[in-house]
């Protein structure tokens, strides 16, 4: 190394600091320490072979356009398993763009299978496709009443 002024012996306090820093090196912060708790997908860093993609995010993968290219099932996965993240927000946005509507009581996404048989101020009724997060698949429901008070209709901006 280059030390134009020559090395200066470390003072006692600096020796102590160095010793403590060196000890702290064995208790380094983990990426998850400064993130909200990920209940389902905790971070689990692992050394990957160099020929695998190292970057977790491919460019522009944090846009609605990218999320719209994902399969519906992927969007449901992101929605239920990545709570409170930007990804969840983008997944919800992409689902809405694909005419899925969130039911706040059942906590499930519904999509009209046909024009509703009844539409009034309070509800609409007809056949719907919905995503059952417990059975993890799409189901059809005939004669379902979607009460508008359970419709999540906030503008996602």
């Amino acid at each position: 190394g280059v030390a134009p002024l020559g090395p200066a012996p470390l003072q006692r306090e600096h020796q102590f600091q160095l010793q403590m820093l060196e000890a702290a090196y064995y208790h380094l912060p983990h990426p998850s320490d400064s993130e909200k708790l990920r209940a389902y997908l905790p971070r689990n860093p692992y050394p990957l072979p160099h020929y695998y993609p190292q970057q977790t995010l491919i460019p522009h993968s944090d846009t609605v356009e990218f999320f719209q290219r994902l399969a519906t099932e992927s969007l449901f996965f992101v929605f239920y398993y990545m709570e409170g993240t930007k990804a969840q927000y983008l997944a919800a946005k992409a689902l809405k763009k694909q005419s899925w509507r969130f039911h706040t009581k059942y906590m499930m996404w519904f999509q009209r299978h046909e024009e509703p048989k009844v539409i009034n101020e309070e509800f609409e009724q007809g056949t719907y496709i919905y995503f059952d997060y417990e059975k993890w698949g799409q189901r059809k429901k005939e004669g379902f009443t979607f009460e508008y008070k359970y419709l999540e209709d906030r503008d996602l901006n």
Binding site: G1, V2, L5, L10, L18, L21
Partner: peptide, 19 residues
């Protein structure tokens, strides 16, 4: 200020180099 005395000597142990 914290780094100065260690950087000045230009001999960085792994923990200092990481910091």
């Amino acid at each position: 200020k914290f780094l100065a005395p260690f950087l000045r000597n230009a001999e960085l142990s792994k923990p200092v180099a990481l910091f």
